[in-house]
Amino acid sequence: MSLDHPLNSLGLAKPPQETRVVVAMSGGVDSSVVAAMLAEEGYDVVGVTLQLYDHGAALAKKGACCAGRDIHDARRVAEAMGFPHYVLDYENTFRAAVIDEFADAYLAGATPVPCIRCNERVKFKDLLATARELDADCMATGHYIQRKLGLHGPELHSATDPARDQSYFLFSTTAEQLDYLRFPLGHLASKAETRALAARYGLAVADKPDSQDICFVPNGDYAAVIEKLRPGAAEPGLIVGLDGTPLGEHRGVIHYTIGQRRGLGIGGVADPLYVLRLDPETRQVVVGPKAALSTRRVPLREINWLGDAAFDSQPEWLLNVKVRSTRPPRPALVRPLSATEAEVELLAPEDGISAGQACVFYAPEGSRVLGGGWIWKGR
């Protein structure tokens, strides 16, 4: 690589035709556009699709990421644009690294986010290692997030379009991975621009709908998947108030989530009741008033820090944090307990914070993502 050569569009000092890029292709419009865009620019593109859970498995569903139909769509894009495409069987890896933990977390009363674990443990770990084995200079994905060069190296930033931003699901990306990854769509102003590019390249997936659910959860029915993975998990129990008073019966703790109001099947109460806590050991669903959902203190572990100074180099950080993917970042004090644990004090209380969700850190000003951690029940 010559340092005298101008940087190409991927930030590498070599011409595109001498730059090999592995593109992670899910079969959807986003990753297809990335692959087509880079191929048109003259890069040595290699498309790779992961076979994650199909092979006729009961969990697979039509139109989900990395199922049979999507592999076919990814292959068609590669053929149309003239670059090689490979399908790698990661079914066992995906089950061990993502699906099993998802099931166990639900059984423990948490609300897991398997898409984060998939990025962390499969796509940005095993697939990234495969890209290196293929002598690729970098790996590109269709995620809506930005990689920018800062004073201390590559930084992670939110996407330009807040409606498409996927930073919540990518907080665990490490500095080493960020050095190798590229996100060519993060700067686009809207998904409409991506679809317009797909149409310009003549891609058959230009009008393909976005996947809405977790890929291995048909129609968002988490409980059905858990029962299939862990037979006998849906044991009935009691719905109780904060003082332990029985208020009704439930079909199984796995059918409930923190903050849920509808579908409790409790009659004769004057004020609405919400799920406050799930106790799998006693098989109890604890309910109470909405006010009891509010909290300001959030314990975190498995923290991935992307700041310039060490995470535990100061007693606290004033950051913006996001405690659910659908909520905006809010100001908070983040107090390190170690390099990988912290307590977050929200400046304004939030409702329905649940173990198993992520808490993602953002700089107080600007778009920089500073990592995050996993919410747990605390000591």
Rank of each mutant, 00 (worst) to 15 (best):
N320E: 05
K125C: 12
G186L: 05
V253L: 13
L59G: 03
Q260F: 02
S367L: 12
C115L: 04
A131S: 13
A206K: 13
A175I: 04
R335N: 04
G356Y: 04
L318Q: 14
R20M: 13
L306G: 12
R261Y: 00
Y274V: 00
R69K: 12
T19L: 09
A159N: 08
Q17V: 08
V287P: 05
D44N: 10
A270E: 13
P236N: 02
P331Q: 01
K14L: 08
K123M: 12
D135K: 08
V113E: 09
Q357D: 09
F124G: 03
D207S: 14
C115T: 06
V275C: 00
R121F: 11
R75M: 09
L273K: 03
L306S: 10
Y106L: 13
L10T: 10
Q166P: 00
A74N: 02
V48N: 11
E281N: 06
S32F: 02
V45W: 13
Y180H: 14
P16V: 04
A108S: 12
A198Y: 04
L107R: 13
T174V: 05
S313I: 05
K14T: 09
Q314G: 11
L337M: 15
N92S: 12
P112K: 15
E133Y: 03
L276N: 01
G68V: 04
A358E: 09
D179A: 14
P331R: 00
P299H: 14
L264E: 01
R251A: 14
A78K: 04
L3W: 12
V286E: 07
G252Y: 09
A136C: 11
D104Y: 07
S31I: 06
F171K: 00
R75H: 10
L300F: 05
L293N: 06
Y222S: 10
P364C: 02
A163S: 14
W374Y: 11
W376F: 14
T257P: 01
L38A: 06
K322H: 06
R297T: 12
G307F: 12
P336D: 01
Q166R: 13
S167G: 11
G248R: 05
M37T: 10
L185W: 05
G202T: 06
F311C: 06
G142T: 03
S367T: 15
Q166H: 09
H187L: 12
L59D: 03
R95Q: 13
D179M: 07
G63S: 12
V334W: 02
E40K: 14
P246V: 00
L264W: 00
E227V: 14
L10S: 12
H85A: 07
I239N: 01
G372D: 02
Q314K: 14
G268A: 03
D161I: 02
A292T: 04
K191Y: 07
K228L: 10
V34N: 03
L264T: 02
V369M: 12
G11I: 06
E235N: 07
V77G: 08
K62G: 11
R283V: 02
S325P: 01
A291F: 00
V34I: 07
D100C: 01
Y90W: 14
D271I: 00
L170I: 04
A96P: 01
A355H: 04
K125W: 05
S313V: 05
